[in-house]
Design a protein around this nucleic acid. Structure first.
Lengths: 190, 190
DNA sequence: TGACAGGACTAACGGTGTTAGTATAAAATG
DNA sequence: CATTTTATACTAACACCGTTAGTCCTGTCA
């Protein structure tokens, strides 16, 4: 029994599925191995350890986010492109909460690949922002602030915060992104 | 050996210290027990399990955040109170990252105590916002958006994101909170 | 055909939270 | 004061976790 067609790519693929299914915090190498019909130790012939899997899932998340934003923007520019991309960001994070978590939790601090991928994942939205023509410094501040707000909103709501008031969270998100759109128009001289 | 003066409160106290010291993700009951000079199993005479500890740490975090914001605001109202509170929020999260993490990670979804405590922790800043006199609905949206942005900024930066551009993150945070202040003035008719 | 290398295996280590059962000291009751 | 009860510590064990060392089989290549 010395061949099962196992490969690093195949492992990562199944890992992504397992993370989303069982949750980022409940993911285990043992369960992953079981799914691949293999003993846990056998995984180590193809990967270095669980850290490599976490990184791969995070990279996959960045790629998925990038595609989501790209598709939301399409060939467009302007307000509707901006708003749709912002909605798509939230929709992606809400629809794939565990994969999204994998991206956020992965400490980019010590990992240039992740840093680059995370930066790149936001690029489609950044392009829309750029097209408004604000000064670069303002654009960077704005883009960081927007990303903060969107991520913060997504994480707080998904963790059950912001539900004490009866006011709809969907409405808050709309107000939030329209607010940012106004600011964007402001810093680019309308 | 049937008495060591152990108590639930004492356990939680040491747990808070241990979480901040070793990190939220590296915290373990066994190490906590060792610190208290007790066998792990003995903890179960005073607590239900690690979940109760996580909750207690989160509650403590909410309380600390509340005190921090209260102190930052003081008896004041207006722009400086707003800005200082927003700065204090970030400073608290940056200075106590693991305790802060405990608050955010604790799923408020299934825990009314946490939901209330988290809501209350933000109250000092909410009071400052209220004093600007905007309509309640607008105020709620604004307060949620601000909280999202502050939390998102803190978490993203602490995880090593937003460091691809050379633009200072401190400056971004200042731009961010001044931006929100402008919006706040806008919705309250200056 | 024989050697080699890759990829699977078993067994084990030290870590985690948790439970069951036991002993003992303190507190409560007669 | 003596006895019973209760509280709190203990040991031992279970089931999980990631990971490593050592082994064996099998497909490939000289």
């Amino acid at each position: 029994m010395a061949q099962k067609g196992l490969s690093s790519a195949h492992i990562m693929e199944e890992a992504v599925r397992l993370v989303e299914e069982r949750g980022y915090d409940n993911f285990s190498l043992r369960e992953l191995a079981a799914r691949l019909d293999v003993r846990p130790a056998s995984l180590y012939n193809h990967i270095d350890g669980i850290g490599e899997i976490n990184k791969a899932v995070a990279m996959k998340a960045a790629d998925m986010l990038n595609r989501t934003l790209t598709e939301a923007v399409g060939e467009r520019e302007g307000d509707e492109a901006f708003l749709d991309a912002a909605r798509a960001y939230r929709s992606f994070a809400d629809g794939n909460p565990e994969i999204y978590k994998a991206l956020i939790r992965m400490p980019a601090s010590e990992n240039e690949d992740i840093r680059r991928a995370a930066f790149a994942s936001f690029e489609p939205l950044r392009a829309v922002i750029k097209s408004y023509g604000a000064a670069e410094r303002d654009m960077i501040h704005f883009s960081r602030a927007l990303r903060s707000a969107m991520h913060g909103f997504v994480e707080l709501t998904s963790n059950g915060f912001m539900q004490r008031d009866t006011v709809s969270r969907e409405e808050t998100y709309e107000v939030l992104i329209h607010g940012y759109l106004n600011v964007l128009k402001g810093i680019s001289g309308k």
